[in-house]
Design a protein around this nucleic acid. Structure first.
Length: 552
RNA sequence: GCGCCUGUAGCUCAGCUGGAUAGAGUACUUGGCUUCGAACCAAGUGGUCAGGAGUUCGAAUCUCUUCAGGCGCACCA
């Protein structure tokens, strides 16, 4: 319908001037229903070129527009806006299309089956997942769902830093606990992890527990001096726990990549050798440096420390070369904003490999930090001190649906405040229930009606009259556009906003109007409208990983 | 000091590829259930879009600048 309108406008404008191209014709969705279903400011844009007043130009365009049955009214408003109002014919088409397509409504094939890899969460296996990881999970998974909905072949991936210094630290911490050294004791590792979960791991280790991690059985030896065993068991224990937390958060991954594998497979060495060969390195003060300043960084970075170890970003580069080699022309990394300094380094490293990797590859979505409020005070998150708001706690206390909603309904850029007491105590006032209620409420009416949903549809003779109906229909028709924009901008919060507005209009319509009326045509038309609304809400919720209950 | 992000109603936040009277939730005030689900609806109160300058027919939106907050600027990850 929008494309149709674009054609009409293009035809009309083409009669007036050749100095405009199609891309300059912008068709908006007005916020106010009084301004129609579509509007364009093309007359204002043309006024300078044509040296006429915008309203005169609008009239000229109107005169040149081919006839169409889609709009019942086209008017010139304000400074020279052209407003288009959909008529009964369009209303029928929209609703019947939604009903016909159901769970497919809103989908598109922009991705054309191309591969995209989305990496998110990627927490280190040194502790339970916290609320920040939850935000990454909610946003990353929703972006993945959006891409799937837009016809991409999506790979969800989780990267484990299981080889660095923090793992040694984890091992020492667990060993200390196993030796019954408490965090308060001065013999406890200074930089050690002090959370209670460390003691849990130590106890499980001493009990010679066995656990499954990613399909592999890991057995604790129980030997306090066997640091290799402590290390393997601790990692497996925490990964296992993280996997469970993510499963409870309805977040699943296709691929888990391990930093340790990059060392084992020689990929890290390959990257270092290549960078040396390509001439982007130099030695200074016993260390090997990468000239990241050649690629836009503000200072050069050490790759290989004087003690022989690599700095953390080297395996990161190797990992991303691996992604590239696996054929992902599009890669999106969702991570906390505290890691944003890695962007320039990873990209610089990739450029240095001379593999024709685009400058802006990979793409990044960075979410800002979350401030957690509990009992009216801010909860400081410190892994080492063991002060925590875990994802598991949130899911247990607030629920998966509400937690996912809260964490993905805001722009990634915003430093959101998560008030646990509010989320818990006011769970009935929660926006997510408001949306789900609209879905369940519709189901209630349809059950009351008791007819066969397959027979629903708006007949050609029926014209919707009320403002509430027109608003709702306009909203439903916007869904595919919202999907495109949210996908394009990597911004799933737009879906949440859409759903809230859609639910509000449904509730408003519900109170405004009766559905189960005597007149059969009217009844079917109205039921069709809410049935279509239900489908859209369900599709939108699915994109956020939130359930659409039929009863609440 | 440098870089990135943010500043919109009492609070939490949308709106940011320039468009029409700046919106929602919450809080507060008032009204609506013998009637399809009141976890709902309707109406009202509430704004120097952090401050200033610029660009233009038009700026919350773009540019510059000041202020405030967050996060980064390691031979840590």
């Amino acid at each position: 319908m929008k494309a149709h309108l674009t054609d009409l406008l293009f035809a009309a404008v083409g009669q007036l001037t050749n100095e405009v191209n199609l891309s300059q014709i912008v068709i908006d969705r007005p916020k106010l229903i009084e301004h129609g279903d579509f509007s364009t400011n093309i007359a204002l844009v043309l006024s300078k070129i044509l040296k006429k007043s915008p309203r005169d130009i609008a009239q000229l365009i109107l005169d040149q527009m081919p006839k169409t049955e889609y709009f019942e009214k086209i008017e010139i408003a304000g400074a020279g806006f052209l407003n288009f109002f959909l008529g009964a014919h369009s209303h029928q088409i929209i609703i019947n299309q939604v009903i016909e397509e159901k769970e497919l409504y809103g989908k598109n094939q922009i991705g054309q089956g191309k591969k995209v890899q989305i990496e998110f969460v990627s927490a280190n296996p040194t502790g339970p997942l916290h609320v920040g990881h939850g935000r990454g999970a909610a946003i990353g998974d929703s972006i993945a769902r959006l891409f799937e909905f837009s016809g991409w072949e999506v790979t969800r991936e989780f990267y484990y830093n299981d080889a660095g210094a923090q793992i040694d630290n984890l091992t020492r911490s667990v060993k200390a606990r196993a030796l019954n050294i408490s965090p308060e004791n001065q013999d406890f590792p200074e930089e050690g992890y002090r959370g209670d979960y460390i003691a849990d791991i130590a106890n499980a280790y001493l009990a010679k527990s066995s656990l499954e991690c990613q399909g592999q059985q890991v057995q604790a030896s129980g030997d306090i001096e066997d640091e290799e065993s402590i290390r393997n068991f601790s990692i497996a224990y925490l990964r296992n726990e993280q996997d469970q937390d993510l499963a409870a958060f309805k977040t699943a991954f296709d691929v888990y990549s391990l930093e340790s594998d990059l060392y084992k497979n020689g990929q890290v060495n390959f990257v270092v050798d290549t960078l040396v060969k390509e001439g982007h390195t130099y030695e200074k003060e016993g260390a090997l440096w990468l000239k990241t300043t050649d690629f836009g960084d503000d200072k050069d970075r050490v790759m290989k420390k004087s003690d022989g170890g690599f700095t953390y970003f080297v395996p990161d580069v190797a990992y991303h070369l691996d992604k590239w080699t696996r054929g992902f022309k599009r890669v999106i990394n969702e991570q906390g904003a505290d890691h944003h300094s890695t962007i320039s380094r990873v990209r610089a490293g990739l450029q240095g490999l001379n593999k024709d990797i685009p400058l802006d590859w990979p793409e990044y979505v960075l979410h800002q930090m979350i401030t957690v409020m509990k009992n009216g005070v801010e909860v400081k998150i410190s892994k080492r001190a063991g002060s925590y708001v875990t994802l598991k706690d949130l899911v247990d206390e607030v629920g998966c649906d509400a937690t996912r909603y809260f964490l993905s309904a805001r722009r990634a850029d915003s430093q959101l405040i998560f008030d646990i007491d509010l989320a818990k105590s006011q769970s009935n006032d929660n926006p997510v229930y408001y949306i789900q209620y609209a879905h369940a409420r519709i189901e209630g009416v349809l059950n009351q009606w008791g007819g066969d949903k397959k027979t629903l549809g708006v007949s050609k003779d029926y014209a919707f009259e009320s403002l509430a109906e027109k608003k709702l229909i306009k909203r439903l028709s916007e869904f595919p556009e919202v999907i495109k924009q949210a996908t394009d901008e990597l911004a799933p919060h737009q879906i949440a906003n859409f759903l809230k507005d859609c639910a509000a209009e449904l509730h408003s319509y519900y109170n405004d109007s009766k559905f189960l009326v005597d007149d059969e045509v009217t009844k079917l038309a109205r039921l069709s409208l809410i049935y279509a609304t239900q489908a859209v809400i369900k599709n939108g919720l699915a994109l956020l990983g939130i359930s659409a209950p039929e009863k609440m």
